[in-house]
Nucleic acid binder design. Structure first.
Lengths: 229, 229
DNA sequence: TGTACATCAGTGAACGCGCGTTCACTGATGTAC
DNA sequence: TGTACATCAGTGAACGCGCGTTCACTGATGTAC
């Protein structure tokens, strides 16, 4: 079969490849991603993909970066729907946005926070600038509470070496952060992630997960935010 | 090559196959498990495995059941190292045992609580009796606190339909459980799982995870157990 | 004690599938003179 | 305006690999009479 003429070509083939890859991941999970499968769906031969991505791993990296960007965007939208001074509301909104994104795109969530793909090593230096943006949302809420003197910091563990290293990376990316804010942000993240990932692995029903998430967000606010005047 | 004679055969081939499978999973992750790979390591041909397991999926199911058994054993050992009346100590011990098992056998942990293997559907009826045993450990600690009137139950969400269903299954397996105890057990589980799974996916260093786990176990005790006389 | 037979635990060839990647190539489109 | 050339976006064949599973078979071991 001859190559299609210019006006029959897909205008944004690189984008179409990624989109098809997401469909494939949604259907068979991340390990099921295959260049030949993508080519079949796009009515193209597999080698044609090499005009856009030099290898399968590079395609995966592009997908990971896109997923982080979409995730960060969702968190930021939730975060922005509530005024800055309302820490409690922002925590709830960010938590809700986090949950919603995860159940809307379960496979992307697993790709980012689940176990590594076999044989794929994520290139941190390429991904970090984007992945940091989502973490920054949580951190900014905690930092705002701290600045207002409403952060309950008692008993929070001291940062260890790797935490300080990550803070260095945050600073380098223009997100100045105090250790205690990062630690509390990670604690919040871990609680939400625990519930979400139990739902995604089928150990929790959607209804139960929502109810528990609501409870945990209240717990988080009670534990880390001073109430009242 | 002829088949080896009786006295050169592996005495427990079914066990040897599982053991080799675990080695493979430890090296390449669960999706990398392959009958041909196992056969190579055991110096037999792939079809020989069919004398012991009727298909790849049946082997996976046997592995899942073994993993749950090993996990439950670890939790029970931790649990039993502290007297029954010491709820706080038991929560700490069970949490520590949970973490230790997960980092000792990260791939088994992912197999049980991570995303499903592509193309493999876990047969719940075969696995439930074993998987329940680990959940029962957590539940028993919470239930003991409740019986002693030391359980703080305020604000815990009401059980939904799927929770009640699971309680039915627990009762059928001889583990009578009150809804509130199960809900709190799940909350504890989710917090520990959140931290553990962030460490396993490389988002948390081991040292940081340990420190945060310690903090979270204290949070759990503060939140759910009445202190003092 | 000997013999016929069943069973057990394997072998080796084959089927049909999928994969990432390389290679030489082609023909339409765009560009420079 | 025409022509030579470069580039772009593909094709199709092939390489070499891995996989689960089936099939007919074999030869040692165990068992019944």
């Amino acid at each position: 079969m001859p190559r299609p003429k210019r006006d029959q070509q897909v205008p944004d083939m690189a984008g179409a490849i990624k989109e098809t890859a997401w469909h494939q991941i949604a259907e068979d999970g991340a390990p099921g991603l295959s260049l030949r499968g993508i080519a079949r769906k796009l009515d193209i031969t597999a080698p044609a993909i090499y005009n856009y991505y030099p290898s399968r791993d590079d395609l995966v990296t592009a997908l990971v970066i896109d997923a982080y960007a979409s995730f960060a965007e969702a968190l930021i939208a939730g975060h922005d729907s509530v005024p800055e001074s309302d820490f409690e509301g922002r925590i709830r909104a960010a938590g809700g946005a986090y949950y919603q994104w995860a159940v809307d795109y379960p496979q992307r969530y697993q790709l980012l926070f689940g176990p590594a793909l076999p044989g794929y090593k994520i290139p941190l230096d390429e991904v970090l600038p984007t992945s940091t943006r989502s973490m920054a949302v949580l951190i900014s809420i905690v930092a705002a509470a701290k600045k207002a003197g409403k952060l309950q910091e008692h008993g929070i563990p001291e940062p260890d070496e790797s935490t300080l290293e990550y803070i260095g990376a945050l600073n380098a990316l223009g997100i100045p952060t105090q250790p205690v804010s990062l630690t509390i942000a990670v604690l919040i993240w871990s609680r939400v992630h625990g519930l979400v990932s139990l739902e995604l692995s089928g150990n929790l029903s959607s209804a139960e997960c929502k109810a528990l998430l609501d409870y945990e967000l209240r717990s988080i606010i009670n534990q880390f935010i001073y109430r009242g005047e």
